[in-house]
Design a protein around this nucleic acid. Sequence first.
DNA 1: TAGATTGTTAATCGATTAACAATC
DNA 2: TAGATTGTTAATCGATTAACAATC
Lengths: 214, 214
Amino acid sequence: MTVCPDKNIVPLAVIKRLPMYYRQLRTLKEQQRVRISSRELSGMIGITSSLLRQDLNYFGDFGQQGYGYKVEDLYNIIGDILGIGKEYPAVLVGLGNLGRALINYEGFRKRGLVLKALFDNDPSLQDTKYAGLPVKGADRLYEYLKHENIEVGIITTPASAAQEIAETLELGGVKGIWNFAPCIVNSGSGIIVENTHIGDSMLTLFYKMKNAEN
Amino acid sequence: MTVCPDKNIVPLAVIKRLPMYYRQLRTLKEQQRVRISSRELSGMIGITSSLLRQDLNYFGDFGQQGYGYKVEDLYNIIGDILGIGKEYPAVLVGLGNLGRALINYEGFRKRGLVLKALFDNDPSLQDTKYAGLPVKGADRLYEYLKHENIEVGIITTPASAAQEIAETLELGGVKGIWNFAPCIVNSGSGIIVENTHIGDSMLTLFYKMKNAEN
DNA sequence: TAGATTGTTAATCGATTAACAATC
DNA sequence: TAGATTGTTAATCGATTAACAATC
């Protein structure tokens, strides 16, 4: 029952499925479900039960033969594996519509993302507050990072500004960058960059729609 | 040079990379680059040149031996493959922060997504306008869809409302659903559902950060 | 032409599925 | 115990990479 991630050999494909399991287990928990078999859970998600069991067994033996998995236990275990529960101090750069939407979504806060300050180039926003958080000029980002312990930098600027901001974040010592700008952000050294290109998924949708007509 | 998608046998893994190529080619086009080799383009993106050439060859022969690819031509070709240029009339349901952010992002409009109406349950919003678009009660969604030709339904409601909205969209005859609610949306018949779970990528980031420390 | 780079085949690698013994 | 379902191995399937002949 111990959570033991086999040193770095867990395939990324497996990791990417964990949040999906986590979400479905939360729904089940909210419905007061106590136990669930790999067959039923995988069916809800649209994968095979083999795949689900394989994935879980990268981290440990969490089930019980003839019984299945305890919903709440598995939910907590996957939460632990994902690093939920820990707090991640964060800054967000780029106070446009998407930035504001992310700031106001409580789900992130609930999973451990704690915003500490916001940055934007617009002079009219300098030294104001938004959602209770201080708004500073992007030129003061590096200085701020030097004095605070920030682990995550969120980029919601236009593409043109993203690379420079990423470099500043990296110099400032963040551990991970969550990039929403529609461009590839390169990290010099090996810090973690997670790209979320919302527009890409729209184009994937268009492609599928176009080709479903046949 | 003709765009010929080999009937439905293009792997999804390939499709998912096309928007990335498209984005990088746009950047190159903006920098006035005329030609590019598969080696250089793939390097910018962080994949092998083999993979890039394999991917493109699902759709046709767009390069020239000894020369490479013409940036602008390839950009346009990939745009065509993805279905950009065509217009997709759309509705958005759920006028929260994320919904508003999407409405105000011009990039979607540029690629062909044309919002026609917005829906929300909040009575104070009924029959107002937002960003020049009419806002209606979610209970009027089905009636609206019956009278208008809408192809895409965007769901930015809380998880609890998403499934019902999805069913209404489907009954109303949309071809594709772009779901941002943090839950799995099941389509009865086979309409296209593209899920964009922003929160999932945050959890993936957390996992990577947690395990990079070792 | 010589050099460069494609398109494409074959080899490798990794991820998914099937199957079943172990066991609750 | 009998039935159910896991954990895990082996088989399959699919995706990526390497290599190179074709050719611009």
